[in-house]
Nucleic acid binder design. Sequence first.
DNA 1: TACTGATATCTGTGATCACAGTATTCTTCA
DNA 2: TGAAGAATACTGTGATCACAGATATCAGTA
Lengths: 223, 223
Amino acid sequence: MRHRKNSNLKRLAQTPLSDQIYQNLKWSLTIGEYEPGSALSIRKVAKKMGTSAMPVREALTRLASEQLLQSATNRSYRVADLEPKRVADQFFVRARLEGIATMLATPNMTNGQIDQLEELARQMVEDIEKDDNESYILRNCNFHFAIYEAAGNEELFWTIERLWAQTGPFLAHIVRDQDMPEDWQTLHTEIAKAIRDRDADRAAQLMEKDISWSTHTFKEMER
Amino acid sequence: MRHRKNSNLKRLAQTPLSDQIYQNLKWSLTIGEYEPGSALSIRKVAKKMGTSAMPVREALTRLASEQLLQSATNRSYRVADLEPKRVADQFFVRARLEGIATMLATPNMTNGQIDQLEELARQMVEDIEKDDNESYILRNCNFHFAIYEAAGNEELFWTIERLWAQTGPFLAHIVRDQDMPEDWQTLHTEIAKAIRDRDADRAAQLMEKDISWSTHTFKEMER
DNA sequence: TACTGATATCTGTGATCACAGTATTCTTCA
DNA sequence: TGAAGAATACTGTGATCACAGATATCAGTA
């Protein structure tokens, strides 16, 4: 009687366990559920997920391959804990790519989609007032990705998605610990407005501003 | 008597077999050794490498995770064979990122490094005249990466490296089958000159031109 | 000859074990 | 009480097996 113990993850039609675990962990990283530097052991995660070590191991090596996790030799996997310079580099690349994506998206978005952006922006202001960081992080994520999806460039979307997962743990750290600059309250509303006006250059510029604030924060931490 | 049969890959100090295989295959993809669509079976690659299936399997899932390989359910892994639109999207992202990297690199490069660029550009002209495609591909790769390394942004470098591996099989296909436009002979020399003049904008512009030629080629294949 | 259906082979995936390192804990001695 | 060293528990990695689904091969029929 081997195999198939009772498991939390069912074997869904055709999607391998390792994929489910990979997606699962990647999302957790994106929304900052793990602190930078925290350890993830194969067997422990496997126990938590209710599977054998095998699929977890694949998921972790994949995440490490995308530099979301770090792996020293014969040491447990850890959530990447990078030099401030490196994190700033990541935010720099994000700023550029997301600017480009915004420029591409601006003429493509329907008025209905822009309505949703404005609604999200409004709710995010509420989140800040209520000090609800977790909700803010989620809505911020939805806001941005709604735009990038409209850009219509799969490769661009996918690259940005990876960068979000990479910077996720750090951004969450900032949002939770630091005071957010005041214009963050209005920035997302302005972005939605620029898209409404079909002003691609301004939308892209605001988007880069939104992200590069994080860049500056990390460059200052370097000192 | 299990384990450790005679293997082509030695267990080098601290670098896992799966890493070696991963790097090995990734490089092969970058320089276009595999045709898009060709199959890679875990057990066959393992036999060729002289290892068990285990490390090969990790390498292949990692490559698939980075979209260098495709994996249908219960089917063998294949070198990505993408829609022309998707490939064009990849080249678009590459063009932008490599433009940015060139701009960052221009003020950083030493005169000695620029000498090397010019030498490479000169040799590439020879390669075209001698119709030595494989040598051209290698030198082209070295030329570009020498610049991106000088940009001093690890994240940017790494993202571009991944995109090269993704577009590698397609670019090699173009270089081998199509006639290259005439200004390719002089483009790299011009890029080196612009960097020598410390004209970052012009260097970036030329770099984007170099890459976007591939974009247009693939957009035309779409029809 | 052309089509059909059964059989054999090959595919990735998950589980399990063996191993060699690393980290931790616990004991022992001063 | 303190430090040092041995023993134990834990880590990722590689090999091997079991399994189910997909593919290819080949025989038998019309």
